Each structure stands twice: as C-alpha cells, then as structure tokens.
Computed example of a mutant assay.
Amino acid sequence: MKTCDNTSVGIVITDHQGRYLVFDRATLPHGTAPAAGHIDDHGSPEDAARAEVEEELGLSVTGLTRITGGWRENRCRRLPGARGTGHDWTVFHAAVTGELVPSARETKNVRWIDSDALQELTDRTVVHAQGRMSGAEFEAAPGIEPVWIQWFVDVAAIHISPDDLLRVEKLTR
C-alpha cells in the first residue's frame, strides 16, 4: 500500500451557467466531489491539478486560479505520511477544454449541478454528520464528500452552520 505524501489538490470546474462539475467517488473516501488527488510525483500543485483533471475527467486545463486551501486532518486510503494523517490542500478553480471522458475507475455519476443541488448535497452530508443517516446510506446515495464542505464554505458556494461544520469535519478523520 502506498504512503500518503500529505499533499492534495482539488479542482473546482464550473461552466458558463455557473454549474459545478462533480462526480461520486468510485473509491474511498465516499462522497460527491470535484476532481482531486495527491500531488505525488506530479511536481507542483498546478501540475498535479492538470494531471488529476485529465486522469479523472479526460479534460485539459487551460487556466488555474488558486481559490483556497490549507492543512486538513482528513484521512485517505493510503498509509499515513510523514506528517501523520492529513493533507496540505491547494484548491483551484479551473478553466477546461475538451470532451468529458470520465475515468470508470475513479468516477461514477459525473454530472453538472447548479448551486441549489450543491446545497442539497451539502445538506445530505450534514444529516450524515448529525448521525441521522448511516454510513451505508451515505455511501449508497452520497452527499458532498466531507472534506469538500470547508472548501465550498470558503468560496461562499454553500451555507452551513458553524456547529454542523464541526460535525462534518469529524467525518473526515
């Protein structure tokens, strides 16, 4: 099993209508999210972002703007890295081109969603974090992947109470 490099990128892609490109993760951790992945041997966060968009969605990145990021104690399916469990995230907004060709290994149910649907998926994650939905129910019909809730809050894409944000954060560990 690989060891975590404690670095991750996330890539928010929107269209001209303001819809978000998301998918249900086909691998752990469960949830609906934009493209993301470890930096690993990709070099810079920008290089990793371009590679992850290509690997997961088959699209080419034509522009990147850093929108948020920072250290999060979120676990992944790898062994803990030198800094323990967690990742130093760099989250970008990306402009893309090309034909959407999702990875069957990494993605399920790739789709464009509007801000109302993003909030509905967030609310589903909150219900799970509040203990009113089992892990199996969340896996079967996921909300937003818990680590992404903070990033969407940071860019004012969703609304969540501070108490619920703390509950969701506990799901990432």
Rank of each mutant, 00 (worst) to 15 (best):
M1T: 11
K2V: 11
N6E: 08
G10I: 12
I13K: 04
T14C: 04
D15V: 01
H16P: 01
Q17C: 04
G18Y: 09
R19P: 01
Y20Q: 09
Y20I: 05
L21I: 10
V22W: 08
F23M: 13
A26D: 03
A26N: 13
L28W: 14
G31Q: 09
T32D: 01
A33I: 09
G37K: 07
H38T: 04
D40Q: 12
D40R: 14
G43Q: 09
G43Y: 06
S44P: 03
S44R: 10
P45C: 05
D47K: 10
D47H: 07
E56S: 03
E56F: 02
E56N: 03
L57A: 04
G58E: 04
G58C: 05
L59Y: 05
G63A: 14
L64R: 06
T68C: 15
N74S: 13
R75T: 03
R75W: 04
P80N: 07
A82I: 05
F92G: 05
F92P: 03
H93G: 03
G98H: 10
G98L: 10
G98R: 11
L100E: 08
E106W: 12
K108E: 15
N109C: 02
V110N: 11
W112L: 14
W112V: 05
S115Y: 01
D116M: 04
A117Y: 02
L121C: 05
V126Y: 11
V127P: 01
Q130F: 02
G131Y: 12
A136C: 01
F138W: 08
A140Y: 07
G143R: 08
V147S: 14
V147T: 15
W151R: 12
V155G: 06
A156N: 15
R167F: 06
R167M: 13
V168S: 12
E169H: 14
L171G: 11
T172K: 09
T172A: 05
